[in-house]
C-alpha cells in the first residue's frame, strides 16, 4: 500500500539553509511502521534524508521524531494507526533541541543534563564480596525506570523546558530517581539536596506530557513527583516547591478549598517582603483577568469541611 508523508527537511549545507516541508509517497506493508516508510524513502527515493535508527523494535531509542505534532518513536508508530484513511503523515524532528540535518537533532544538551544528575551508582562503604543483598521488590520496582531508553521523546515535548532551558528535564530526572530509589546508593541525601536547586524537581509544571508521550511507560513525571516526596521526607522542606506543596495541602485541609492568595504568600514566605512586593504586579494582572478571586481575610471553610479533614486523617495514618 502507499502512504503519503510530509517530512520536514533541513540541509545545513544548502546555499540557503532554511527548513522546509517536502511531500513524499512511500510503498509500505499493512503492518509497516512510520520508520519503515522513512527507510523506504531513504533507500529508494532520496538517500540524503537523514534520520537516526537502528533496532526497529523500540529498544535502541534512536528514532525519536514528531509525528503529526507529537513526539514518539517512528519504529513504534504504525502507519495505519496515524493514517487510517490514507491521511498525510507529518514527520518533524524532535523539539527542544537544535536540528542538525532533517530529522537528526543535536542530543548534546540532552546528555549534558543526564550528566548533571551524577548518573552512576555511588555505593556506601566497602563493596561486599558477593552481591548487595536487597529486597527483591526494590529491584523489580526499578525495572520501570531502567526501561528508559534515553530516546529524548519526553524532552522533546516537555512544556517546562520550552520556556526554561535550564530545567533538567524529564529524562534526566527519571534517571536521578533510578539512583535515589536504589537501596545500594549511598548518596541519596546529597542527590536530593542537589535536585532542589533551580532547574530541578520543583520546576516541573506537571503537565503530564512526558507521561503521555513516553514510548516505554517510564512515566517521568511520576518519578519527579516521587523525588519531591523523597526530598521533603528527607527534610528538604525549605524550598519554594516544598512550601508550595505544604501550603497547598494545608489550605485544603483547613478550609476544604484552595486559598490562592495565601498559597502565594506562604510559598514565598511571610517575611520575604521584597519578593512578595515583586509579585504584586502579577497578582494584580491575575485579578484583572479574573484568574484570582478577590483576596479575603475571611476565607470561609466549605460546609462539611470535616469530611475533607477525615480524608486527610486517613491518608496521614496510611503514610
Amino acid at each position: 500500500m502507499q502512504v503519503k508523508l510530509k517530512v520536514r527537511r533541513y540541509n545545513p549545507e544548502a546555499e540557503n539553509p532554511v527548513a522546509y516541508q517536502q511531500e513524499f509517497t512511500a510503498e509500505v506493508e499493512a503492518y509497516s511502521s512510520v520508520l519503515d516508510a522513512l527507510m523506504y524513502l531513504r533507500e529508494y527515493v532520496d538517500d540524503s534524508l537523514a534520520v537516526r535508527c537502528s533496532c526497529r523494535g523500540a529498544i535502541c531509542g534512536s528514532c525519536g521524531v514528531r509525528i503529526n505534532g507529537q513526539a514518539t518513536l517512528a519504529c513504534k508508530t504504525k502507519v495505519v494507526s496515524v493514517a487510517p484513511h490514507g491521511e498525510t503523515i507529518t514527520v518533524e524532528p524532535m523539539g527542544n533541541m537544535p536540528v542538525l540535518k532533517d530529522l537528526v537533532t543535536d542530543m548534546k544538551p540532552f546528555w549534558d543534563k543526564v550528566r548533571q544528575v551524577t548518573p552512576w551508582l555511588q555505593p556506601e562503604g566497602l563493596e561486599p564480596e558477593g552481591e548487595y543483598v536487597v529486597p527483591p521488590e526494590s529491584m523489580t520496582h526499578l525495572n520501570g525506570v531502567m526501561g528508559c531508553i534515553m530516546c529524548g521523546v519526553c524532552v522533546s515535548d516537555c512544556t517546562a523546558l520550552e520556556v526554561d532551558s535550564n530545567f533538567i528535564g524529564p529524562a534526566a530526572l527519571a534517571k536521578a530517581y533510578r539512583f535515589a530509589a536504589d537501596p545500594r546508593d549511598g548518596e541519596s541525601q546529597e542527590r536530593l539536596r542537589a535536585l532542589n536547586e533551580y532547574g530541578g524537581i520543583w520546576d516541573c509544571t506537571r503537565c503530564m506530557e512526558c507521561v503521555e508521550v513516553c514510548p516505554k511507560g517510564v512515566a517521568p513525571m511520576d518519578r519527579i513527583m516521587a523525588l519531591r516526596e523523597k526530598a521533603m521526607a528527607a527534610g528538604f522542606t525549605n524550598t519554594y516547591g516544598a512550601r508550595h506543596a505544604e501550603a497547598f495541602s494545608d489550605s485544603v485541609k483547613e478550609g476544604g478549598r484552595l486559598d490562592e492568595t495565601m498559597l502565594a504568600i506562604r510559598t514565598i514566605g511571610f517575611f520575604n517582603v521584597p519578593k512578595l512586593l515583586s509579585m504584586a504586579p502579577v497578582a494584580l494582572r491575575a485579578l484583572v483577568h479574573r484568574k484570582l478571586p478577590m483576596p479575603s481575610p475571611f476565607h470561609a471553610p466549605i460546609p462539611d469541611v470535616h469530611q475533607v479533614q477525615r480524608i486527610f486523617g486517613r491518608l496521614e495514618k496510611k503514610l
Binding site: 552512576w120 529486597p135 529491584m139
Partner: peptide, 21 residues
C-alpha cells in the same frame, strides 16, 4: 564478572532472599 556488574549498578532480578536470582 556478574558480581562486578551488580556492583556497577545492574538491577539484576533477586530471589526472595534478596540475592541474585
Amino acid at each position: 564478572e556478574i558480581i562486578a556488574l551488580e556492583h556497577m549498578g545492574v538491577i539484576f532480578s533477586r530471589g526472595e532472599d534478596g540475592r541474585l536470582g
